[in-house]
Amino acid sequence: MVVPLMHVITVAGLLFTIGVMGVLFRRNAIIVFMSIEIMLNAVNLAFIAFSRYHNDVNGQVFVFFIMTLAAAEVAVGLAIIIGVYRNLRTSYITDINSLKH
């Protein structure tokens, strides 16, 4: 019994949608950040599936670079969240609106 490629891609699509819903509907900045990680991982899964399907190593190299990027992004982003918390005493994105008013 083999798995159709479409099923793997569908799992990746569902994972991406879950991540987008987290970004849109959660107010806690840390959860929003975790949802972004979920979206990056959905893309990685699609890359790996197509890399296996075409028997091509390039997709896996791309995933390697995306992981490097995610690590850098998480470090900087969490530092920003800590900085915002230090100044405003909140981590809710609805409360961070001083540029709006």
């Binding site: 019994m1 083999v2 798995v3 159709p4 490629l5 479409m6 793997v8 891609i9 599936a49 197509f50 890399s51 296996r52 399907y53 028997n55 091509d56 190593v57 390039n58 896996q60 190299v61 390697f64």
Partner: peptide
């Protein structure tokens, strides 16, 4: 995507694949 990718993934051991090994990825990197 579903229009273009109709096939299924090869079963384990079906088709000897070494593209996921450290050696192959490292060589490309």
């Amino acid at each position: 995507v579903g229009r273009g990718a109709q096939g299924s993934l090869p079963a384990a051991g079906d088709e000897a694949s070494s593209i996921g090994s450290v050696r192959a990825v490292g060589e490309a990197l």
